[in-house]
Amino acid sequence: MEFTVPDELRYAESHEWIETTDGNVRVGISDFAQDELGDIVFVDLPSEGDELDRGEEFGVVESIKAVSDLYSPVAGTVTAVNEDVFDEPELINESPFDDGWMMELEPSEGTDHLLSPEEYRDQI
C-alpha cells in the first residue's frame, strides 16, 4: 500500500510529522499512522501554553481497536491546538496532513534530529 509522505515535512520515528512555518511548527500524525489505527474516535491534546520536551507525551489518539500516545517531535511551547479534531476526529483519517493537524508549537530547538521524507519512507 502506498502512503502519502509529503516532501516538505519532517518526521519522527513515532510517526508524527512536523511542518515549519515562520518559526512556528505544526504537528500531526502521518498517513501511515492513521491507517494503522483505523477509524479514529477520540483525541486528547495539550492546552495552549503547555511546555513540552522533545519526545514528551502530548496527547492520545484512540481508534476502536487501539490507543496510541503522541510524542512531541521537538521541545517547545504549545501555541495552538486544533479544536476541530475533538468534534470530528475523522479529520485525522481523512486529511492527516491538513485539516487533521493537532497542535502548533513555538519550538525551542531545530528539527535536524528528525527524519527526512526519504528516511521516513524507508521506515514505513
Binding site: I64, K65, A66, V67
Partner: peptide
C-alpha cells in the same frame, strides 16, 4: 469504548 479494557489496553 473497549480500548479502556484489559484485552486491548493491558497494563494501562
Amino acid at each position: 469504548l473497549q480500548t479502556r479494557e484489559q484485552h486491548i489496553r493491558r497494563e494501562r
